[in-house]
């Protein structure tokens, strides 16, 4: 019984961390219409920098500044924001599909640098030397995980609250206005380029927060954590949950991550050994079908965007 509880705490922690990242993407895509194909890079920047700033000194790679945890986490968020600012300055003026490819490329390059810059990140072996904060006080077991889950949940609610208020605020209206009709927004004297950059940087900083928490939770990060699969998983969560709806984003994270792990559990339990060689491929096909199916039959997601303000003059509506 206690075991199941312990597992659920663990599961909920990771799902909540991913949900935070999905919220960040929702601000970019759901609210502003920015196609960020490089989620893994901003997530990874948060994770790597948090661990480098907060970790113990290591011989093999940079870092181990042993800063207080919250400072390290803030540093991780700042790093993700900085990366987003640079990338945004360079790419946000691009057309949507170019933006998708350019940011996808950013993530590839990011993974590449993490893998090769041994002096900076430990290379393919990953970054070690991080101590989970308050471990002396709470130990390692369920206690620790419960407290950490509470911490993550507080942050999740905080991010959710801020984004909800934002969506209802004049700034939120502005974001949607830019998403729906940039020229109209410009004609009203708004500056779409700057506002888009703000949304992009904020969303990426939220992903950085998620990454920082992820690194903390595992006390380790390696290039394998920032492969394009992660970007894809986060996107799937948003599409299934419902782009534009923060509650949907959170629900999507729990649903997709739940389905991903539960299918692995079920396959290990019930599938014959021979079929298990193929479970990876089958799982990916299923995920692909869910995505395509959602776009075909319920493009608004399980929890559609609830429009707080008047709808734009989209043709056909």
């Amino acid at each position: 019984m206690i075991g199941i509880l312990s597992y659920l705490v663990f599961f909920a922690t990771l799902a909540s961390i991913l949900a935070i990242a999905v919220l960040g993407l929702n601000l970019q895509w759901g609210n502003t219409g920015l196609f960020n194909g490089g989620v893994a890079a901003f997530f990874g920047a948060g994770a790597y920098v948090t661990l480098i700033l907060g970790g113990q000194p290591q011989d093999e790679h940079l870092g181990g500044f042993a800063l207080p945890y919250l400072v390290a986490l803030a540093g991780g968020i700042a790093a993700a924001a900085l990366l987003a600012w640079i990338v945004g300055r360079l790419t946000l003026k691009l057309r949507h599909d170019y933006l998708a490819i350019a940011t996808f490329g950013v993530a590839v390059a990011f993974e590449n640098v993490m893998r090769n810059a041994l002096w900076l990140t430990g290379g393919a072996q990953g970054l070690r030397g991080f101590e989970r904060p308050m471990r002396d006080l709470l130990g390692d077991g369920l206690n620790y995980n419960s407290v950490f889950l509470a911490f993550v949940l507080v942050l999740l609610l905080l991010v959710y609250g801020v984004l909800q208020r934002l969506a209802g605020s004049p700034f939120g209206r502005l974001l949607r206005a830019i998403r729906e009709d940039e020229d109209a927004a410009r004609s009203l004297g708004k500056m779409p380029a700057r506002i888009r950059l703000t949304a992009f940087v904020t969303g990426s900083a939220i992903m950085g927060l998620a990454g920082g928490l992820y690194g903390t939770f595992y006390a380790f990060v390696s290039p394998q954590d920032v492969l394009p699969t992660l970007t894809f998983q986060i996107w799937a969560m948003l599409i299934v949950g419902g782009a534009g709806n923060n509650r949907g984003a959170i629900a999507g994270a729990f649903l997709i991550w739940g389905a991903w792990t539960a299918s692995g559990w079920a396959l290990s339990r019930f599938a014959p050994v021979e079929a298990q060689l193929y479970t990876g491929s089958i799982q990916f096909i299923l995920i692909g079908l869910v995505i395509v199916g959602m776009l075909l039959w319920r493009p608004q997601g399980l929890f559609p965007e609830r429009l707080v303000v008047s709808q734009s003059g989209k043709p056909g509506h």
Partner: peptide, 24 residues
């Protein structure tokens, strides 16, 4: 009890946690 990790750290860690906590 055999679990697949798909070489994805998230998936592997979750599977390991389930084995340790639920299957003990």
């Amino acid at each position: 009890v055999l679990r697949d990790d798909q070489t994805d750290p998230k998936v592997g860690v979750d599977a390991a946690k389930a084995l340790v906590d639920i299957d003990q």
